[in-house]
């Protein structure tokens, strides 16, 4: 990949405090619709307040990255950094990062079409 470009993003909510001064996650695997699940058996002691808040949210069930950002009122860029740490520490797990990497797009489209027609 190309070298890091000058950083252009600043989160709304003290991102440098929340993320210990980092604005990029340790791995670049999160999409807005990556699905995130919590491991229920990990201790929350020692987590920063923001990570603890994220864990408390995620322990309720699966959510997408975008939903986590929306519920916690944090910028997506900040959420990605925190998620990266929590995946690394074994607190959270993700499903495949990009939807089209899972099922062929035509199959997804057919299922979406059938589902929408049944629902609307």
């Amino acid at each position: 990949m190309t070298p890091a470009t000058p950083r252009r993003e600043r989160g709304l909510v003290r991102p440098y405090v929340v993320t210990d001064g980092r604005s990029h996650p340790t791995r670049n695997t999160f999409d807005l619709v990556t699905l995130v699940m919590a491991h229920t058996d990990r201790p929350l002691a020692g987590l920063s307040p923001e990570k603890r808040r994220m864990m408390e949210l995620c322990l309720g069930g699966a959510l997408s990255v975008a939903e986590i950002a929306g519920h916690l009122a944090l910028p997506v860029s900040v959420v990605k950094v925190l998620l990266g740490d929590l995946v690394d520490s074994g607190h959270l797990a993700t499903r495949a990062p990009i939807p089209s990497a899972q099922l062929p797009e035509a199959q997804i489209l057919q299922e979406v079409l059938d589902g929408l027609r049944a629902r609307l």
Binding site: L35, L57, G60, G61, A62, G70, R95, P99, Q102
Partner: peptide
Amino acid sequence: SAPACDSVRDSGVYLPRTVRTAAK
């Protein structure tokens, strides 16, 4: 396990356990 914020008190906030794929 207090909810992280008010909005998650609504029912149906979370995805069904069976969901494997997200499209946008």
